[in-house]
Design a protein around this nucleic acid. Sequence first.
DNA 1: CCAAAAGTGTTATATTTACACCCATGC
DNA 2: GCATGGGTGTAAATATAACACTTTTGG
Lengths: 241, 241
Amino acid sequence: MTTSSVQNINTWLTQINNDFKTAISVDCVIFGYDDDALKILVSECDMPPYENEYSLLGDLVHPDETTDEAAKRVLIAKTGFTDVFLDQVQVFSDQNRHPLGRVITVAYYSLIKIDNDHLTHLEKNANLQWKEVNEINSLAFDHFNIMHTCLRKMQKQIREQPIGFNLLPQKFSLLQLQRLYEVILNIELDKRNFRRKLKGLGILHDIGEIQESVSHRPARLYTFDKSVYEKKKNSGFNFDL
Amino acid sequence: MTTSSVQNINTWLTQINNDFKTAISVDCVIFGYDDDALKILVSECDMPPYENEYSLLGDLVHPDETTDEAAKRVLIAKTGFTDVFLDQVQVFSDQNRHPLGRVITVAYYSLIKIDNDHLTHLEKNANLQWKEVNEINSLAFDHFNIMHTCLRKMQKQIREQPIGFNLLPQKFSLLQLQRLYEVILNIELDKRNFRRKLKGLGILHDIGEIQESVSHRPARLYTFDKSVYEKKKNSGFNFDL
DNA sequence: CCAAAAGTGTTATATTTACACCCATGC
DNA sequence: GCATGGGTGTAAATATAACACTTTTGG
C-alpha cells in the first residue's frame, strides 16, 4: 500500500469501508501418499450449485490471525496434526469464483503421512475423504484449478527440497522413496542411480533395521536426517533430485 | 473455502459482513537495472508514522478486478508501461502491518527496462525514485521485508527462466548480460563459460550489429528470441543458468 | 522351488570448471 | 601507444545415464 493512491487518512478509511465487502479465505490442498498413489483430502460440498462436488478444505481468515495461521488452523482442525508441512502457493481472486460474493482465497498445499490414526480421526469427520489426484476430474468452485496449481508447485519443490519425506512413514526403504518420486513426478527412475544419488547426499540415516514380515528379502530402513540436512544446507549444499 | 465451516448460506454472509473489515491491497517491487546496479522504484511515504521512509508502489484491490489486474494497473499508472513482466510472490497478512487497520497485501515483483522515456514519465510523478537495492536499509510498513522476499524469489527465477532480458535494452552485448547476472546473483561468472552456455541455448539472436562509439572493440549485439525459446520450452527444454 | 523385491559396479557420455592470450576501438 | 572491454579453445574433473545379475525372504 502506498500513500500515493490515498489523499489522506480519512479518505483512505472511507475507501475501505465502502469498497470492501470482500472476504478472505484460505484453501488447503492436503496431499497424502498411500498405496503408491498421490491423494488429496477433500470434503463433500453442500453449497449450491456444487452439491455433488467435493471441495478443498478451507475457512475464512479470522481477524486475529495471518493467512498462514488460518491455514494451519484448518489443518489442525481437519487432520488433528499440529506439525505439518505447509506452503503458501498463490492467491485466487477471480470476481466470480465464489457464488456467495467476493471471496479472495490464498491457496496452500501441505504434505502429511496417511496412517491409521488419521483414518480414525477422519471417521469423525464423515464428510472427509482421500481421493486419488489422478481420479479427480472436477471440484467445487475453482478448486480443481487450485489443486493443479498446487500440484505443479509441489512437483517442482519436491525436487528442490527434501520435503517428500513428509509423505512417508518415518522409517522407509529406498524403494518406497523412489516410488514416491516416480508417482508424484510421473517419471521412471533407475534404481541403482537413484540409490547412489540419495545415499550420496548424506541426509539418509540407516537405522539398522529391516522390514518385517514381507514375503521377499527385507529392505533396510532409513530415516531422513533433518539436522544433517540443515547443517549441509547452511554450508551451501543443495538438495536436487 | 469449504462448506464444512459454514452452517448455511445466511450464516456465511453474516460472517462476512461482521468479521471482515479487512482491506486487500497489492504491492509491487519494481526492479530495474542501470549503471551495473539493481534498483527498485519507490515512493516517498507521507503516512504516519512513516513520513520519512520510502514505500513500495501499491494500491487497494478494486471490487471489479483480480489482484493480478490490480498489480498491473498500479504498474501502468506508475511507469506508463503496459507490457511488463509481473509475478505474484506472496501474501503478507500480519495483523499490525498497517497503521490504519487490517490490510492484507499481495506482493508482486516486476522487471522493467530503465530508459529515458521512463525518466521523463517519472518526472511527472515527482515522488517516485529509483533506489539501489543494496543501499536500502529500511522502508515504510513491512515493505523492507516484502522487498527481500521478492528479491529472493526473483534471484531464484532469473536462473530458471529467461526473464533477465526484461531488465536490459532490447539489444545487448553478452558482457552486459553477464554483468546483469553477476550483480543480481552476487556471484562471479567465467566469461568464456558464460558465453558458451548462453550461445548454446540457442535463444539469443545475433542481429549483426555492433556497439557504436565505445572506446574499445565494439561488442556484437544480441536480442532474446522469445519465439525460439517458447518452441524449445514446449519440447522439454529448460533454461537453467 | 518359486515369486518378489533387495542390493550391488562399471563404462560411456555429457556437463562443468579452470584457465591466458590476442583483437579492435577511441583517445 | 595505451587503456578498455571483445572475443576465442582445450583439457581435467565431475556428474549423469545406461545397463544385468545374485541375494534373501515368505509361502
